[in-house]
């Protein structure tokens, strides 16, 4: 799958889920309608995206972005909206602005993106008033993100080692698991430390609020930690 196509899909999924009020999953036919292509080819593309870890996708249920996918989508969205600003504010192009940006976004390097943002005076909104995502933000939901938070390192609990400590930043994933974790007191800002790791990517044992918990890797993967 060409890079351009991947980016286009991820961006579409992001747009649609934003449109649906941040409802996490987007349906295949919604994507097909949006891109004006057949549902079958969307399904095929989504399967490919899933294999590469960009999306979580279950036929009939719908698709949602993984962290990896979301990062790319946000990046491309940022480029898109910065380019719109550029076209609109500097070049004064109104007609076809959106389509132009749509094409250019894929070829704008990260360095050029940074330079462009600086050149435009780090705009926060694009010409039609939509927010320009910041580059390494975790989710589009958190509105109060300030510069200090952005500079912090946020990693998955999975990448921590035995003996490491941190603070929970956010938890996502399966609703059942999320509910259980918050009942057990795993909430944003809660301190957490890793006590033991089972070999061969087995579960980890963590200490939270004075109790010891064993959790599988796939669940630890959905817990984001600030260190």
């Amino acid at each position: 799958m060409p890079k351009e196509e991947i980016e286009e899909y991820l961006e579409t999924i992001y747009d649609l889920s934003e449109e649906l009020g941040n409802k996490k999953t987007v349906k295949t036919n919604q994507i097909a309608d949006f891109l004006k292509i057949s549902a079958a080819s969307v399904t095929e593309a989504l399967q490919r995206l899933r294999e590469n870890g960009f999306v979580e996708y279950e036929p009939y249920k719908g698709v949602s972005l993984t962290k990896k996918g979301l990062q790319i989508a946000l990046k491309i969205k940022r480029k898109h909206r910065l380019l719109e600003c550029f076209l609109h504010d500097v070049l004064k192009i109104r007609k076809g602005m959106h389509e132009q940006a749509c094409k250019m976004e894929h070829y704008l390097s990260d360095n050029a993106e940074k330079a462009l943002s600086k050149f435009l005076g780090n705009p926060k909104k694009c010409p039609d008033g939509k927010e320009i995502p910041l580059s390494n933000r975790l989710t589009s939901k958190k509105q109060t993100t300030n510069e200090k938070e952005l500079s912090k390192d946020i990693i998955r609990l999975n990448s921590l080692k035995k003996g490491d400590k941190g603070k929970i930043f956010a938890i996502k994933g399966n609703e059942k698991a999320m509910q259980r974790l918050s009942d057990l007191g795993l909430l944003p800002n809660t301190k957490i430390s890793i006590i033991a790791e089972a070999p061969l990517k087995g579960p980890i044992k963590i200490l939270v609020r004075g109790s010891h918990l064993a959790i599988s890797r796939e669940i630890a993967n959905d817990i984001y930690i600030e260190i």
């Binding site: 059942k176 579960p203 064993a214 959790i215 796939e218 669940i219």
Partner: peptide, 10 residues
């Protein structure tokens, strides 16, 4: 199937 979340008692 969901993953493991279990309390480890002393």
């Amino acid at each position: 199937s969901v993953g493991l979340i279990m309390e480890m008692p002393s």
